[in-house]
């Protein structure tokens, strides 16, 4: 099988191009997705291929164009809506949470909303508190929607097809620092499952549960730990709703120690939920209290050193992992 070098951004674009080519119901809309090629340049060149009917620039009104997406989905289309960053998705929270997520229920099962919403998440690019927060954990709280957090090129390339097939609203969170990430992708890379976590690195001594950009920091930490004789297992969650409890619990049953890495704020975050599920399902497998490394509870700062300090980093993962293995308080 031939592999080629691509970026995360290109993998996302390939997935959308493939979808637009293969299904006339699919179209893309959002702020600056057409002529400008997308704020993160994901849709560059798509306007030229598919025209303004299928690659549509919208006014700066998240509530309006997400609502339009819901209407289009109800009308039989398969819309992909890009909301520049998840901070701005809060302007459409009413559409997403109160409408898209509930319609199937409130219509007595008559109306599905097959809508896909893409948004950028996370910090690390000096985009400050307006554009850098991690709100995927909030959306994972809401029943009726599916929350995807692709971290790898395979998932960036392969999750879109499944998301478009899904009869329910699907939110895809793309971490800002991953767009330029380059790697090998198989020539024939295609659809992947949009459920289940994946063990990205098997290990015996410690489980690190991560997603998005945290996955790569965790894998880097695991390499450094291996040099110290600590064999860490790294799990890529891939999907925050529904959570894949089984993979986490089975891993904890092997390693008995666990660290959750979550860029979102600590209080009430997805790390808290995962920790609680471990308590519920694997309490008697724990040899140490569950540990977590989360974003510091501040608006993400602009200054690079402060932004660095506010986000989970490899050094922090190393420190907690060593403590979990060797620590005596």
């Amino acid at each position: 099988m031939n592999a080629r070098k691509v970026t995360y951004r290109e993998a996302l674009r390939e997935a959308m191009v493939e979808a637009l080519r293969g299904d006339p119901r699919v179209f893309l809309m959002g702020e600056d997705v057409g002529a400008y090629g997308g704020c993160f340049a994901v849709s560059r060149g798509m306007l030229e291929e598919f025209g303004p009917e299928r690659v549509r620039d919208t006014p700066l009104s998240e509530s309006a164009f997400v609502g339009a997406g819901i209407g289009a989905a109800l009308g039989g289309m398969r819309p992909i809506v890009e909301v520049m960053t998840c901070n701005f998705s809060l302007l459409a929270a009413d559409q997403i949470v109160n409408t898209a997520a509930t319609l199937l229920h409130m219509s007595g099962g008559q109306f599905s909303v097959p809508l896909v919403i893409r948004m950028a998440t996370g910090g690390g690019k000096q985009l400050a508190a307006q554009h850098s927060h991690s709100l995927e954990g909030w959306y994972a709280h809401v029943p009726g929607i599916r929350v995807l957090v692709p971290a790898t090129l395979q998932d960036a390339r392969g999750m879109m097809a499944g998301a478009l097939e899904c009869p329910d609203p699907v939110l895809i969170f793309e971490h800002q620092t991953l767009y330029n990430r380059e790697g090998e992708l198989a020539e024939d890379a295609g659809a992947v499952a949009i459920h289940g976590a994946k063990i990205q690195r098997p290990g015996r001594d410690l489980t690190i549960v991560a997603y998005g950009a945290g996955l790569w920091k965790s894998l880097a930490a695991a390499e450094a730990l291996a040099a110290e004789g600590i064999d860490a297992e790294v799990i890529d969650l891939r999907v925050l709703r529904p959570l894949d409890d089984a993979t986490i619990v089975e891993s904890v049953a092997r390693t008995h120690r666990v660290l959750i890495v979550d860029e979102g704020w600590r209080s009430g975050g997805i790390a808290a939920e995962i920790g609680m599920r471990i308590m519920e399902q694997a309490f008697y497998q724990l040899d140490r209290p569950v540990a977590r490394l989360c974003g510091v509870e501040v608006p993400i700062p602009y200054a690079p050193q402060l932004e660095h300090a506010a986000l989970p980093q490899v050094e922090g993962i190393l420190e907690i992992a060593r403590e979990l293995i060797h620590g005596h308080e």
């Binding site: 008995h256 309490f283 008697y284 497998q285 724990l286 040899d287 140490r288």
Partner: peptide, 16 residues
């Protein structure tokens, strides 16, 4: 008030 009982520290796994 119900007082907290001081227990020996034993990990759940160790206890099991």
């Amino acid at each position: 008030v119900i007082p907290a009982v001081q227990r020996r520290r034993v990990s759940p796994l160790a206890r099991k």
